[in-house]
Amino acid sequence: MTSSTTPGIARFNALEEAAATTALHEVCASSAWGRKLLSRRPYTTAEALYAASDAAMAELTADDLAEAMAGHPPIGRPKPGDPTSSREQAGMAGASEDLRTEMLELNLAYQDKFGHVFLICATGRTGEQMRDAVRDRIGNSPEQEREIVRTELGKINRIRLARLAERAELAEQAEEENA
């Protein structure tokens, strides 16, 4: 992105707090993360927004991470009617029934061990790559896995923030709320 404020960032900065909170909650379900990003507005660039996201992610407690993870469906089962969830998990869309069944079993084993869904930045990954990742990560300690999840959430947040920063709908929301 450029070093000047983009129209999308300007629109995000102009949102009323409630609308900005809602928009950020769609990016990440952690209320602590959202509050930290709100408190640092206005942003001059997308890079500044991403840096604030990274800093907020680094500060999240285990409970904050759990809240963020609760906003993510299991791999292979995107939220019905949620285009973001479907787009992010597109690598599983054409997966064989065997792979889907294996992912369900691995997801359940992972959840039994760690107490939360297997979380990975699925954008651009195939079903096989996601299966291999859960196989590799299920042997981690809870502490190792928490830090991997923090990193994966950060990647997901950056992708979602990029979309947020460019969404034309924000202009309409801001105009309606400021009218």
Results as ranks from 00 to 15, higher is better:
residue 2 T to K: 06
residue 6 T to W: 02
residue 7 P to A: 11
residue 11 R to I: 01
residue 12 F to W: 06
residue 12 F to G: 03
residue 20 A to L: 09
residue 23 A to M: 03
residue 25 H to I: 11
residue 26 E to K: 13
residue 33 W to A: 02
residue 34 G to M: 02
residue 36 K to G: 04
residue 37 L to A: 04
residue 38 L to G: 00
residue 39 S to K: 08
residue 41 R to I: 01
residue 41 R to V: 02
residue 41 R to W: 01
residue 42 P to Y: 04
residue 43 Y to G: 01
residue 48 A to L: 06
residue 55 A to C: 01
residue 56 A to K: 06
residue 62 A to W: 00
residue 64 D to F: 12
residue 65 L to E: 12
residue 66 A to R: 09
residue 69 M to A: 14
residue 80 P to Q: 15
residue 84 T to F: 08
residue 86 S to I: 15
residue 89 Q to W: 07
residue 90 A to P: 01
residue 93 A to F: 09
residue 96 S to I: 10
residue 98 D to C: 03
residue 98 D to L: 13
residue 101 T to M: 05
residue 109 A to V: 00
residue 111 Q to A: 14
residue 113 K to Y: 08
residue 114 F to P: 02
residue 116 H to P: 02
residue 118 F to S: 04
residue 123 T to C: 00
residue 124 G to Q: 09
residue 124 G to L: 07
residue 125 R to M: 08
residue 125 R to T: 03
residue 129 Q to D: 13
residue 135 R to K: 15
residue 137 R to D: 03
residue 137 R to Y: 09
residue 137 R to K: 07
residue 139 G to E: 08
residue 143 E to Q: 15
residue 147 E to L: 10
residue 148 I to K: 05
residue 151 T to D: 11
residue 155 K to C: 13
residue 157 N to S: 13
residue 159 I to H: 07
residue 165 A to V: 05
residue 165 A to H: 00
residue 166 E to C: 08
residue 167 R to D: 15
residue 171 A to S: 14
residue 171 A to I: 09
residue 173 Q to M: 10
residue 178 N to G: 13
